[in-house]
Amino acid sequence: MTQQLTQENYYGDTNFLTNSRYKRYQQCQAKAFAVDNGSWVEDRDETALLLGNYVHSYFESPEAHDQFLAEHGEKLLAKTGKNKGNLKADFVIGDKMIESLKNDDGFANLYHGFPDDNVQKEMIVFGEIEGVPVKGKLDSVNLTRGYFVDLKTMKSIYNKEWSEELRKKVRVAANNIIGFGYHGQLALYRELLRQMTGQEFRPWILAVSKENVPDKEILGIDDEFLEEGLSKLKSDIVEVWAVIQGNQKPKACGYCDYCRSQKKIGPVVYLSELIGE
């Protein structure tokens, strides 16, 4: 019997699989397993994660934002240059994003609900997918009106960029959703909510851009994409869990920083092979 999930033990618990952990194993099982067992430490830029949490915590509650600033405030400040001691440029943009949303009635009604609505912030959901215990945290759930909202920060919404998955140029918001697997994430959360409540919920993404003048939209995901995302997760999750549990050897992608650190020179690789990939 696993322990009951609470706000205090949620992040330390490893008895349940999270979407973010699942996605790490999708990228490279060998690296994710090495990170989990402490034999590899990721060297990554925290800026995007900190910015997202900076904006999220503000709309969760004043207490949550104060706690975030107490824990991470030093990382938000410039250490050198003429801006020393003030917010770094990335987080000045964060303040602009917050201002853009907090003065928007449409956002307030959706994210915080109406006065008589039962809205829960950072609600923990959990259940099983293909027998694997899974958990998640939802930004805002309107239990009265049957929907939940995921607040996503994006570099743009309507600019275009190349999508490897779709093999064409698409709007940045679409590339974010497909490229980062947000359709699978929201489909997973919808399924866990259904298991917990017996009700169907509609997921919405509240996208806000990191542009100097932030853009914002409520984005819906068509059912076909939600079904595709959940189907993909179901097809892979049992293998991922078997690797995490030590019942199956992790596969190496061969190209990430961890795999490069383990690499030994092997057979010659010909140009035709590189082109053929």
Rank of each mutant, 00 (worst) to 15 (best):
A64K: 14
Q3P: 01
T6K: 00
S163W: 07
I237Q: 07
E227R: 13
L193C: 14
L76A: 02
E224D: 12
P267Q: 13
A173K: 04
D117Y: 11
Q3M: 10
L226M: 10
E71C: 00
A48K: 12
I177W: 03
L50F: 03
G52T: 06
A108H: 14
V141N: 11
G73T: 02
N15C: 07
L17A: 06
E165Y: 13
G113A: 05
S57C: 13
K23C: 11
F225C: 01
I205S: 06
V170P: 01
I244R: 15
L143A: 09
D139W: 09
V238T: 15
T2A: 11
I129T: 11
V134P: 12
V172C: 03
A70I: 00
A64T: 07
G81Q: 08
G179P: 08
V238A: 13
G127N: 10
G179H: 06
N212V: 12
D215F: 01
W204G: 00
T197M: 06
M196E: 15
A174N: 03
K152S: 02
D150N: 12
E211R: 08
L49R: 13
E165R: 11
S100R: 15
L101H: 07
H56L: 09
E211Q: 14
L193V: 13
G113N: 08
D13H: 03
S20I: 10
G52D: 06
Y25V: 04
G106N: 13
L87P: 00
T144N: 07
S231F: 04
E99V: 04
K84H: 01
V35K: 14
D139M: 11
A34G: 11
Y270V: 03
G246S: 11
D257T: 13
V134T: 10
K23N: 14
G198V: 08
D13Q: 06
I265H: 06
H112S: 13
F148S: 05
K216Y: 10
G266L: 05
D222A: 15
N175T: 00
A30N: 07
M154D: 02
P62S: 04
